[in-house]
Design a protein around this nucleic acid. Structure first.
Length: 495
DNA sequence: CTTCCACAGGAAGAAACGGCTC
DNA sequence: GAGCCGTTTCTTCCTGTGGAAG
């Protein structure tokens, strides 16, 4: 499963079997042989022993070969899906758990194992992964699935045609296998013709433009073309329902009654335990045939996970004793998020490397915690739409030049000034209210609804920690360049 | 207890847009 | 090129509401 350690590396020609650099002098210190008195940009950075053996092990994309503290859940999933290998339709499964509790990793692990087993049993079994945070409408879910199966079918048809063409060729040349005679020729040609007709019939679904029922039909035809058991894994299924209702799930859960050759089963993964409340009762009962809950990891379990990975990721003796417990403790505070714990450990290691220290220490972890939070905010702010940036900038100006927390009305006033100054379109207060809520959800600002009694109900808005860094990101946007002299004006207004 | 402020936030639908079909 | 279809963004209209003031 994991070929990380043997993956082909374009640079591997320069490594001897021991992994040391024979391009330079053999030895653990990577020093260039040429003139060292001058020193290049990178020499200094590469000085000292590297502490990582394989950093990728700490990245979220890595699927480990063992998932500590999830064996029971994995067995539970496997026992449900096993019926796929008997050509039966497995029950639909709903998997709950907060982020970083191993839902997706476990599900992917089980589905990879299932697909592997299905090769051995010669029972075609496909698991299709759909991330509903990205693909969040009925149209797009069916379009993605349809296109995947269409591609699969076209590849299978291509291979089949190639095989048949080869048989025809050898038959005509007279060197074909014994069991084929010239009498088979018309049959072979007929089959090739039929396959070519099928090939014509499959048409990829465009990004938009088709009516949804046509996309559904395309998906249906593609799935039912070859006999197989299909498991559709809908990650973040709650996002799909929130965004576009339960039509997708309704259609998927009914599809088996019309399929002739194939069987479809759904595996939903959700962060939200209560998302089925809003579903149509028919969908709820069919979707939740089996439910599995992934509890958050506690600090001890996180420590186990980190130790497992650190063993592979770091060279021995690269971590001081307190590092892993601290990473685990930080992540346990954030509802037992293993992804967060791994990010912390990796970043702490990177900071340590940059410091050219030999061992990761507690201070590196603390700095990593700060850095991760700041990086996230900067990335979110940088990619914000223009109008949201204006609202955020208005909030920052108010925060800078007034003492108390600002209110929705005040933010809207300043926002209008900014729009006027920049000549941008000015949205309604209703819309700005939603933008403020979105910024709150992203954790860039804190907005709390408070009642001022006689003086109405409003949101009290404050900037979360990194105000100056946030402002710097906004100022770097070229569209904000001409705003320089507006600040004193706004300052005067609210002094 | 009633009034009333200053909004919050839901519902519905208009507008704009990309991409399709015929 | 007109007419659909799905999606996103935004507006309009509306009802709801916590609690200080009266």
């Amino acid at each position: 499963m994991s070929d990380k350690n043997q993956r082909s590396n374009p640079l591997s020609a320069g490594l001897d079997s021991g992994g040391s650099f024979n391009r330079f002098e053999t030895g653990s210190q990577r020093k260039p042989t040429a003139d060292t008195s001058r020193g290049s940009l990178f020499d200094e950075l590469l000085e000292g022993e590297p502490i990582f053996d394989d950093k990728d092990v700490l990245r979220p994309a890595y699927t480990p070969s063992t998932l500590p503290h999830r064996e029971a859940k994995i067995n539970e999933m496997a026992s449900i899906l096993a019926s796929a290998l008997r050509s039966e339709t497995p029950s639909n499964i709903l998997i709950y758990g907060k982020t970083g509790t191993g839902k997706t990793a476990s599900s992917k692990y089980v589905s990879e194992e299932l697909e592997r087993a299905s090769d051995r049993y010669e029972l075609p079994c496909h698991v299709e992964y759909v991330n509903c945070e990205v693909i969040d409408t009925q149209y797009r879910v069916f379009a993605k699935l349809a296109n995947t199966f269409i591609d699969n079918n076209l590849n299978a048809i291509d291979a089949q045609i190639e095989l048949l063409t080869e048989q025809v060729r050898s038959l005509r040349a007279g060197d074909g296998p014994e069991e084929l005679t010239m009498d088979n020729l018309p049959e072979l040609l007929d089959r090739i013709q039929a396959l070519e007709a099928d090939q014509e019939n499959f048409e990829r679904v465009p990004m938009t433009g088709w009516p949804t029922d046509r996309v559904y039909e395309a998906f249906f035809d593609a799935v039912d073309y070859q006999e197989c058991v299909v498991i559709i894994m809908l990650d973040e299924i709650d996002k799909l329902v929130e965004k576009s209702g339960d039509d997708t799930l309704y259609n998927l859960s009914r599809i088996n009654s019309d399929l002739v050759r194939s069987r479809v089963s759904i595996m939903g993964i959700s962060n939200d335990l209560r998302f089925t409340d809003t579903l149509d009762p028919r969908v709820r009962s069919s979707l939740g045939e089996e439910e599995i809950v992934f509890p958050p990891y506690d600090a001890n379990q996180l420590r186990d996970i980190l130790e497992h990975r650190a063993e592979v990721a770091f060279k021995s003796n690269s971590l001081t004793e307190e590092v892993i417990p601290l990473c685990a403790a930080y992540a346990a505070q954030e509802h037992g998020d293993a992804r967060r714990a791994l990010d912390l450990l990796r970043t702490a290691g990177e900071l340590c490397e940059r410091d050219q220290s030999d061992r990761v220490e507690v201070t590196h972890v603390k700095r990593a915690q700060e850095k991760l939070e700041l990086d996230r905010i900067i990335e979110v702010v940088r990619t914000l739409p223009h109008q949201s940036k204006l609202v955020l900038y208005a909030t920052i100006l108010l925060d800078k030049y007034t003492d108390s927390n600002s209110k929705t009305g005040e933010v809207y006033d300043v926002y209008r000034q900014l729009c006027e100054e920049l000549g941008s379109d000015c949205l309604t207060q209703r819309r700005v209210t939603s933008l403020i809520s979105e910024l709150d959800m992203l954790g860039i600002i804190n907005a709390v609804v408070v009642s001022k009694g006689r003086y109405g109900r409003t949101k009290e808005i404050s900037i979360s920690k990194h105000r100056d860094e946030t402002e710097a990101v906004l100022s770097s946007d070229s569209r904000f360049a001409e705003l320089g002299d507006v600040q004193p004006y706004i300052q005067a207004r609210f002094d």
